[in-house]
Structure formats: C-alpha cells, structure tokens
C-alpha cells in the first residue's frame, strides 16, 4: 500500500502530528511519501526527513500559513499525481478544515479520529470510538481502493531517526483562496496561576453542575494544597478563565497528581493530561472513559467525596 501523508506546520515549525503519522504509516505501507505544502517547503522538508519516509514531495504555494482552499486544491492534485492507496491527515483543526471536504468531493473511503490501524489481508481496518469513547468500532472500506484517514493525535509515538528520503516537487495550480489567514491572536495569557507548573491539580468538570458549587472545590483545592483546573465546558460557560482549562484547546499539563472530579474523559480533554504522573478519577458513571487512563478510580458522587476529604485536611 502506498501512503501519502500531509505534513502539518505552523509558523515554520512542523507539528508533532506529522511525525506521528509517519509512525502510523509504518503499520501499513511499503512506500510512504510526505507532502509539504508551504511557502518555503525546504525548511519544513528538513524537519520531516525521518526514518520511514521514502519520499518528500514539496508543493510551493504563496500562502505562508494554512489556508483551507489551498490545502483542498493541493492535496487533490497530489492525489491525482501520486495515486496513493491511503492518505493520512491529522485529526486536527487544520485537518478538519479540508480533509472531509476533499474526501466528500472525491467520493473516496473516509474515517476520522482513527487511533489504530491494521491490515487484514487486502483490507485496511481502522479503529475509532463512538458514544463518548464508551464503545469502539472496527471499520473497513469495502468498494474503495483509496481511503483518507484522519488520525487522532498522540496515538502513535513521533517517528525519529535520520531519514534518506528522495526529494520531489509538484507544481500545483492554486486558483484562489476563499478563506484567507489574516492574523494570529495569542491566547490571553492572563489569569492568576500557571496550571502547567503545578505538581498537584484538582480538576473539576461539568459534573459539578452549577457555578455556585465551584466555591466548594476552590476551598478543597486550597486545603489539599492543590491548584484548581477545569474542563472546557466550565470555561465555555464563563465560570472560569481559560488559563485554567486543561486539554487540546487549553493547556497540556503533566503534574505529579491529577485528581479529576466529574470529568467524563473526552478525547480532547485526555490529550491535555493523560501523561500525568498519577491520575485519580471520581465519576458517578462506571463506564466513563476517564477510568481508561486513570490509575485510581472511584465510582462515587463528587460532592460526597469532597465533603469527606475536607474533614481529612
């Protein structure tokens, strides 16, 4: 199977997902090509020349940063030029921008948020989950000899080691971009604490129910010597500043202890904390996905546990 990987980069730096895709391709491919779509492809190409990459295809474009239409067109031309069996794209915000559009337009096989891959004879079998990661599914692609897969970040280790890829070029004709990058706005750094620096995070999720209940957990965190962090819904609702948010669109943390109360364990939350030293989770739902990454778990009501913990500190 020949595999085409689309490199992802931001402000001149290749993003880790790209090298993770190289590792994923090793499960399938005899031949792996990495496409670098950039204004200055050479510097990005250097960063993706790792072991396992056979070929690097540079596509020079005018745009400095990711633009949806540029990727839609460039990857479409790459596919018709290279005829790959499998196209691997990150399940990232950029990937979400163009990959489903392209797969739909071409009518090729498609799956997103894939975290495992294997070959079963001639068939490609991918794994993804449904229903809050409570259920997994094996999927295949009958009738499709070309498949585009969006791969969940951090599912594979980034590939490393020196590569010796053949360098190639594709002259792509990009006709206009209807969604243009104008500017980057940094995340407001504000907020009173740096949760990435804490040894002990007490993290609460939507299970806390109401804003009024948060005070109790601020108090408990204080007593236990922990720093309070939260899942995204609490920030979305304006209960907490985003400097306290753990996860893919918030902060990536790695404290010695991560104590999660009323957090279900959505993929994007786990992306920000699953490498913590010790994870302790309290949730009323015994099937909650957070228990799959936790070291210690309790099926219990978070308010009851909080009350008992207060007595101990």
């Amino acid at each position: 199977m020949s595999v085409l990987i689309v490199a992802e980069h931001l402000r001149g730096q290749v993003r880790p997902i790209t090298l993770e895709l190289v590792s994923a391709a090793k499960e399938l491919g005899e031949k792996t090509a990495v496409a670098v779509i950039a204004k200055d492809p050479a510097s990005i190409a250097d960063q993706v020349d790792v072991e396992g990459v056979n070929e690097i295809v540079s596509v020079k474009v005018e745009q400095e940063e990711f633009e949806n239409d540029v990727h839609r067109q460039a990857v479409e031309q790459l596919i018709s030029d290279r005829s790959p069996d499998v196209i691997l794209v990150g399940f990232t915000v950029n990937g979400m921008g163009y990959a489903p559009a392209l797969a739909a337009k071409l009518g090729i096989g498609f799956a997103s948020d894939v975290f495992a891959l294997r070959r079963d004879g001639d068939d490609l079998v991918a794994e993804r989950s449904f229903y809050g990661s409570k259920v997994n599914a094996e999927i295949d692609f009958p009738g499709h000899d070309r498949v585009l897969l969006m791969i969940r970040p951090t599912s594979w280790q980034p590939a490393e080691g020196d590569g010796a890829a053949v360098q190639a070029k594709l002259e792509a004709g990009i006709s206009g971009s209807r969604a243009r990058h104008a500017d980057f706005q940094e995340v407001a750094s504000g907020g009173d604490v740096d949760i990435t620096a804490a040894d002990f995070l007490l993290s609460v999720g939507r299970g806390v129910g109401e804003k009024e209940n948060l005070g109790q957990f601020e108090g408990l965190a204080d007593k236990m010597g922990a720093t309070l962090s939260v899942s995204r819904p609490l920030v979305d609702q304006g209960w907490m500043p985003n400097s306290r948010q753990v996860g893919q669109s918030g902060k990536t943390v790695k404290p010695k202890v991560y104590f999660a109360l009323g957090i279900s364990g959505a993929v994007q939350h786990l992306a920000g904390m699953k490498t913590s030293g010790t994870i302790i989770a309290v949730n009323t739902d015994p099937e909650a996905a957070i228990f799959n990454v936790a070291h210690y778990g309790a099926v219990a009501d978070l308010f009851e546990i909080a009350e008992e913990l207060e007595k101990l500190c």
């Binding site: 990232t92 915000v93 950029n94 921008g97 969604a179 243009r180 104008a182 985003n242 669109s249 902060k251």
Partner: peptide
C-alpha cells in the same frame, strides 16, 4: 471569523 487552533491560538480568517 476566529478559528480556534490547538492550545487556544486564534487564527483570524477572512472568508467569502
């Protein structure tokens, strides 16, 4: 429009 990237970085995009 604001497009929210990983880590919360915002990409300001002008879309037709």
């Amino acid at each position: 429009v604001n497009r929210e990237l990983e880590g919360g970085l915002v990409d300001v995009v002008e879309v037709d």
